[in-house]
Each structure stands twice: as C-alpha cells, then as structure tokens.
C-alpha cells in the first residue's frame, strides 16, 4: 500500500468496476491478505465492503449463491441449507477475528495453497461469477484454478459471487493442521453423487499439500460408475497419494504428505457416503 494515493469505497458494483478499470487499482474485500501488502504497483484502493449486490447468501431452488463479500463467519451463522463441506471449510479458516473479515471472494481470488474454502468449492463444481465494467461471465471453479486466478481474471475483473448445487453431492471436508488455527498441512474434500446405489460421479480435491487446490481427476474417474464401499474408498485414497503432485513443505516430507493423502481421501469418501457427517449443520441430501 506504499504508493497508494487514493482510497474509494463505492456504494454499488457498477461504480466499483469503473474504478477497477483504472490501472493501478486494487480491490480490497476483507483485507486480511492485502492490508500488509507493500506492492508498489497499487495506486488506488477500491474497498468493496459497502456493495450489497455482492454480499449475502441466497437460495434459489436447489442452488446456493454466496456473494463475494460473504465472510467465513457469515457462512457459519447462516441458518439455511449449506453443503456441510462448505461449513466445515469456513469453520477451519484461521481464528474468529479472521473468519469475521475473510471473504469468499477474497479467499478465492488470492488462491493461496493453504486455502480451505477453495478445496470445498472445487469439490462442489462451484460456478464462479466474474465482472468487469464491460462484461460479466460465469466460469467453472475448475477453470479458475486450472492455473491461478491471477492468470484467469482480466484487468479490472473481480469475482462477484459463486453458486453451488445444494443437494447434488454427498460431501465431506477434512483439514489436517498442527493446531486448529494453523495453515493446513493437507486438506481434502470428497463429493459423490449417488444414483441407483452406485457412484454416478465424484469430485475429489486436495489442498495444503499441493501448490494450489486441485481436483484429482484420475481418482474421480476411477470412482465413477462403481458401487461405493470401503475397499473402493481405500483404493481411491491410494490412487490419490500416487497422482497428487506434492509441494515442498518444511513442516512435513513428501512421504508423510502421501500417507495422509491416502488416509484422508479415503476417510472423506467414507464420511461423504455415510451421508455427510461434518459434525456441522447443513446437509448434502
């Protein structure tokens, strides 16, 4: 923030997007990542915190929409239906004062390797709404994280919200960390769609132990069409450990990463199949 000359807090999205079209502009949501930044390129801060259009949680049929400015605490306080993996992921983000500020949009656009929320959203095929002053578009979360959001978002473009199916998948999120408030050593989310007793499709994601939250497509393909049982889930865990590209982590070695991935992917699948037991409110079916 060292070269910032202007701070604006627009009251509507159109005005914010106009500001963000200017070079040197940066959007600030909860600020938990940006406040301490010393990026010299930024000359104007556009604070999104007053824009009601991109805030709030809404349900439309079997779709759930999270506005970009929804905080982790907003997710935990929401009285309606939310897939329990999203609730578990929001709950595992840092500590209460951070959860009170950190937003869905901010977490998604930063795309840090330890992000808990992205792991849950990717495993639900979340659809991401983007906007610039000139156009809006919707892309899949898989597309957003195929590289990194910073490479996908255009100049002046922001995430305005995200939509997931509330009931399509049985889903379960697990985070492994040394303490409750620490960054994930490894996190995973398993979502399975059951049809006539077999797995119609699956989404398996991991984070923390990889450079950026990612789907393990080979594992998903292995599960599709199979009858769900403990042996299958165990085999899926082993495959996950084999196909994931682990990042180097000073806290744990790759053998450990592989071992916990095997165990936790299998466990997430078992718990998802047992009809979603994230120990939290929310339901997947």
């Amino acid at each position: 923030m060292i070269n910032v000359e202007e701070y604006v807090r627009p009251q509507n999205l159109a005005e914010a997007l106009e500001h963000l079209g200017d070079s040197g502009s940066v959007a600030i949501a909860g600020g938990t990542s940006l406040a301490l930044s010393r990026n010299p390129a930024w000359t104007k801060v556009v604070d999104l915190s007053d824009i009601e259009e991109i805030d709030g949680i809404t349900e439309d049929g079997d779709k759930l929409h999270l506005g970009a400015m929804v905080t982790m605490s907003d997710i935990l306080r929401y009285p309606g239906n939310i897939p329990c993996s999203i609730v578990a992921a929001a709950k595992s983000v840092s500590s209460t004062p951070i959860r009170n500020m950190a937003t869905v949009g901010g977490s998604m656009v930063r795309g840090v390797y330890w992000s808990d929320l992205i792991v849950a959203l990717l495993a639900l095929d979340a659809q991401v709404e983007l906007a610039t002053a000139d156009e809006t578009r919707v892309i899949s979360s898989s597309e957003l994280y195929a590289t990194h959001p910073s490479k996908v978002l255009k100049q002046g473009e922001i995430i305005t919200g995200v939509t997931v199916d509330m009931f399509k998948f049985r889903t379960h999120f697990i985070k492994l960390a040394r303490t409750k408030v620490d960054y994930a050593i490894m996190s995973t989310c398993a979502s399975i769609q059951i049809s006539d007793g077999s797995i119609e499709q699956a989404r398996i994601t991991i984070g923390g132990a990889v450079n950026l939250a990612t789907r393990l497509v080979e594992v998903e393909e292995m599960l599709a069409g199979q009858m769900p049982d403990g042996e299958l889930f165990k085999a899926a865990g082993v495959k996950a450990g084999n196909v994931a590209s682990f990042r180097s982590d000073f806290r744990v070695n790759s053998e450990y990463q592989k071992s916990v991935t095997e165990k936790l992917v299998a466990r997430a699948l078992e718990n998802a199949f047992a009809n979603c037991r994230c120990d939290e409110k929310g339901s997947a079916e």
Partner: peptide, 27 residues
C-alpha cells in the same frame, strides 16, 4: 501480522484484528 490477536477491536460491531485493517478502511 494477524497471528497473536493482541490488537483486537470491534469495528462496526465486528470483532477483528486491527493490524489487518488499514486505517483508511475505518473511514
């Protein structure tokens, strides 16, 4: 840098860490 929590304040009714809020955000 947002770890220790000694700087907590209530900002517009929300408990947060004031080291992770820019002064201008409190305008």
């Amino acid at each position: 840098e947002g770890d220790c929590g000694a700087c907590g304040v209530i900002l517009d009714g929300i408990y947060c860490k004031s080291c992770l809020v820019l002064a201008m955000q409190a305008d």
